[in-house]
Design a protein around this nucleic acid. Structure first.
Lengths: 230, 230
DNA sequence: TAGTGGTCTAGACCACTCA
DNA sequence: GAGTGGTCTAGACCACTAT
């Protein structure tokens, strides 16, 4: 018996959408009908349509059926930069350098982000990531050492704060955002760019249960481009 | 009989990873074992693990089994900004204004991106998107009118170029990238910001089969933040 | 070669929601 | 109430790969 994979069905349906056979907003045949049409089980059609829905190409409703989306592709996958890999996959040598490392009571803005009491200290680290000895990204990070006391004993020369945390703490990503900011004197000096250069910034927080573990800001060198996949 | 959903299994496995029961790099029991353990069918465990793999938390290999990833979460989902929705969902009034619209032979850089012959013209459009009459984003776009001749007759006052294309052309997203750039005089004037302000830029290309339909650059107002989901 | 994930099937029941 | 998607099951066979 001929094998009909969910990939085949997905591709066939996608083709019929892209060819215009099923226009934007149109209703697609029910799973059972498609299963008969393609000669496969309903579960196979279901998986194909479920993936198309996850990718934002169709909209599914019980009883309402499946429709081609008016505004397709609301979501894209984004490769989160893991700096060491990014640099090494480009064939360059990765190195990092700890600029600042101290434990103190955060200023009010950071304290609120970390959700800490006024009398609790946290670790503040500034790191420079280098590709072939040229500045690649400048990292500023607060670590909640009240939640992760082991962090105080880490040798940051051997492993970057990011990698230690990722390897040692049961993770759960909190939020991720991106923006553009102007380089101030500290950033300009660290990245070796002009003051007022346009810098691509990534913000990331990580939680353990309901406690914020670390809040990181990564500032990339001038001209950095973040590529999305898909 | 008790119902054991793939969501439950997924959550249970995730919990055992995050609690540290299965550390980073560790091997997780095989699907069949987990199915017995949770009292469900293997297909249910399979779906749970498949989703965890798609989210980047585990790595699966035939015969090799399933392991907890060393560097979790390489991917995040990103809500692609659909400007009108973004503005309207914030409770503001959306409006757009076509600044420039012309048909000409692109300069060499754009011509190469569009993959056009030297003697073929394309449409160039500059649009300003406004939220409550304040500049929100400035859009520059080339449209391959050789492939989409209908575009020449569109009334851009009624519907933005982006929305018309999305509704009229069988879509297929090409690439998506983000960067930070300094505002030049044109951008500063359009967005009402200072020259040299740091501007968040999104680049997007759309293909139909193997022809590039449109190449768009979207420059957001100063201070714009792109939020990732998940 | 043996073990593990990848996938398909046929059938079943449930949940939602539109008419 | 009826139609559609959502999901689970039990079983089967295949594909890859570690050993």
């Amino acid at each position: 018996m001929a094998v009909v994979s969910h990939r085949f069905v997905k591709g066939a349906i996608l083709g019929r959408i892209q060819s215009g056979e099923w226009g934007l907003g149109d209703l697609i045949p029910a799973e059972t009908d498609l299963a008969v049409h393609y000669g496969c089980a309903r579960a196979t059609v279901n998986r194909a349509l479920r993936e198309l829905a996850e990718e934002g190409l169709v909209l599914r409703k019980r009883k309402g059926g499946t429709r081609v989306r008016q505004m397709p592709v609301r979501q894209a996958k984004l490769a989160i930069p893991v700096i060491r890999e990014q640099i090494e996959s480009a064939g360059a040598v990765y190195r990092h350098h700890t600029i600042t490392r101290e434990v103190r009571v955060p200023d009010e803005v950071s304290r609120k982000k970390l959700n800490l009491r006024e009398d609790i200290s946290a670790a503040y680290i500034e790191t420079l990531h280098l590709a072939d000895n040229a500045p690649y990204a400048f990292e500023r990070r607060w670590v909640n050492v009240d939640a992760i006391p082991d962090f105080l004993n880490v040798d940051l020369a051997a492993v970057s704060a990011n990698e230690w945390l990722v390897r040692s703490v049961p993770f759960s990503l909190g939020s991720l955002s991106f923006c553009a900011i102007k380089a101030d004197a500290l950033i300009a000096k660290s990245l070796g760019c002009a003051v007022d250069a346009a810098i691509f910034s990534m913000n990331r927080t990580t939680w353990l249960d309901d406690r914020l573990i670390t809040d990181m800001e990564l500032l990339f060198r001038e001209g950095y481009i973040l590529q999305s996949v898909l």
